[in-house]
Design a binder for these strands. Structure first.
Lengths: 243, 243
DNA sequence: CACGTCCATTGACCTGCATCAAGGCGACGG
DNA sequence: CCGTCGCCTTGATGCAGGTCAATGGACGTG
């Protein structure tokens, strides 16, 4: 999901510094100004649909705040999450007119949006922008492929441990115990992991009873020993968890 | 996996016309010549490893002939295929130095290779090349996300039907019955689908007994009614199968 | 021809997760 | 204060697919 080093996000644009770095890490003054000139903001409440599957998509955007999900569905309603967008992640596809999956707000979420056509025009005139987007797409591709391994081969316990570890790794402070607030409901976690709500819940309590995590309400999680949790995730030495 | 319309592959390069269209659909004379000047070929036998997981990757390439797989593994040996490369597909990642997954020849396979550094240099000088690679990456991303749905939510029967349908859709002739030679062993099919060999085998015979396919040896498959097979795959109206 | 290797098939059995069903708990409104 | 709604947890049960094991066919080799 094309995560950007937020420590770089020190750009001279008060409104959404993160986004500008994310879209165009090497943009200089004038390009940055042009990007800034054509942006607009919009906010959705948790649970609202941002784009329907198959719908025409007239904008590209990046997440300023909150958390959004990408999902695809089978005709009988079974649903799989295929992407999780966090602040600084990019939404939309230059050169594509329709959305191949549904975009939904997981929490209250704010996007910084650009008209797709205008953005594409700028891409042709600003060569390194395409290179930057390519890099971000490759990051997303890596993340998608890591998730294919999770979905295809991990047990329920490993799946849940994997997701918790990923979220805990982003914890705002490094002090032990690590603490994070889950941006996802059990339903969203299940959609992400290819499980049911019940199985997610059972594995959460199992991890708690085994002393690997503690729960603080339904959404707060605490972890004394992240390495132990990562060991439960069954990853090889190379996995996304360790990068 | 960035499939290219092969009907466009009428380019004035005798050795590997497909590849040039694939890498740079809009390249004109001079650019094409520069690409051609720095290429080299290499062939692997079925089963050989092309690149190890985590290994430095000094080239980018495209598949001229045959079939290669991308796989990722857990530490205990469980393995998941995360990509299947067919002729005209692109391998390698401009801007990345190491391979995040293992690349293996599924059949005898020939790659047309470029030194990665030289290719990257050319990218900076040939703006539309980055745009083209972005488009290909987005195709791969779509394919990966479709597979996440397959891995996370489909039953074994649906998974096998999905894979067979994808392969039959590429059948060289449209005459009924459709006929295709599987480029994959049962083991590779299982790796792709997140199943075991035995389950793949059982579902193949179940589909045969239900009259949806016929088998011709271990690798040949025949299908009178592709629509019926696609119905078994459980896809929504939007799926990759119907495009 | 006998033998070994590789790949696929089939059967018997078991287990991990889905399914179905019943509460629990906190937030919010009347 | 109570009722209700959304979200989560827990229990009981069943089955899809994994695991273990045996067999068979295709092919190459001594």
């Amino acid at each position: 999901m094309s995560r950007i080093d937020l420590s770089l996000a020190t750009v001279d644009c008060a409104a959404c510094p993160i986004r500008h770095r994310a879209v165009c890490a090497s943009c200089e003054g004038e390009d940055l100004a042009r990007l800034a000139a054509m942006k607009s903001y919009r906010t959705w409440k948790a649970g609202e649909t941002i784009v329907l599957e198959g719908q025409a998509l007239s904008f590209v955007a990046s997440v300023v705040e909150g958390c959004a999900t990408l999902t695809r569905s089978l005709e009988d309603g079974r649903m799989q999450m295929v992407g999780l967008l966090m602040p600084s992640d990019f939404v939309g596809r230059p050169g594509r007119t329709t959305a191949p999956y549904e975009v939904t707000a997981a929490t209250k979420v704010t996007l910084c949006m650009f008209d797709r056509r205008a953005f594409e025009r700028m891409m042709t005139e600003t060569p390194h922008l395409a290179g930057r987007l390519l890099e971000m797409s490759l990051d997303e591709l890596d993340a998608a492929r890591d998730w294919m391994l999770v979905l295809g081969r991990k047990t329920a316990r490993e799946k849940v441990a994997t997701l918790l570890a990923i979220i805990l790794r982003r914890a705002p402070t490094a002090a032990r115990p690590l603490r994070a607030e889950l941006p996802l409901t059990r339903e969203a976690m299940a959609a992400y992991l290819g499980l049911t709500i019940e199985t997610v819940s059972r594995q959460m309590t199992a991890l708690r009873k085994d002393g690997l995590i503690r729960l603080d309400g339904a959404r707060g999680i605490l972890c004394e020993d992240l390495a132990a949790l990562i060991a439960e995730a069954g990853d090889d030495g190379d996995g996304a968890l360790l990068t």
